[in-house]
Measured scan of single mutants.
Amino acid sequence: MIFPGATVRVTNVDDTYYRFEGLVQRVSDGKAAVLFENGNWDKLVTFRLSELEAVK
């Protein structure tokens, strides 16, 4: 189960963010908004829950 605050990895091989890890900001309607941070940039991207896996 994916909840806000969880760290997730993108599993969709066709996505630009494949294998990126980010922090879930919100979850609704089968989608999750994931925040990616890297140095001087932040990006908030929405994914279907089926495209994400929780990082242990």
Score class of each variant (00 low, 15 high):
M1H: 12
M1P: 12
I2H: 02
F3N: 06
P4W: 05
G5H: 03
G5C: 07
G5N: 04
A6F: 07
A6L: 09
A6Y: 08
A6P: 01
A6S: 10
T7C: 13
R9T: 06
V10T: 02
V10K: 01
T11N: 07
D14N: 14
D14L: 13
D15S: 15
D15M: 05
D15R: 08
D15A: 12
D15T: 12
T16H: 11
T16G: 07
Y17T: 02
Y18M: 02
Y18W: 06
R19N: 14
R19K: 11
F20K: 12
F20N: 06
F20C: 14
E21S: 08
G22Y: 03
G22H: 01
G22L: 03
L23P: 02
L23F: 08
L23S: 07
V24Y: 01
V24G: 00
Q25F: 11
R26C: 14
V27Y: 03
V27I: 11
V27K: 02
V27G: 00
S28K: 10
G30D: 08
G30C: 07
G30K: 05
K31Y: 15
K31I: 12
A32S: 02
A32G: 03
A32I: 06
A32Y: 05
A33T: 14
V34C: 03
L35K: 08
L35C: 08
E37T: 15
N38E: 10
N38L: 14
G39Q: 09
G39R: 08
N40M: 11
N40Q: 11
D42Y: 15
D42N: 15
D42E: 14
K43I: 14
K43A: 13
L44A: 06
L44G: 03
L44K: 04
T46G: 04
T46Y: 14
F47V: 04
F47K: 03
F47Y: 14
R48H: 14
R48S: 12
R48V: 09
L49S: 03
L49C: 07
S50L: 06
E51K: 02
E51Q: 06
E51V: 05
L52R: 00
L52C: 02
L52E: 01
E53I: 09
E53G: 04
E53T: 08
E53N: 04
A54V: 15
A54E: 10
A54P: 12
A54W: 12
K56E: 13
K56F: 13
K56H: 12
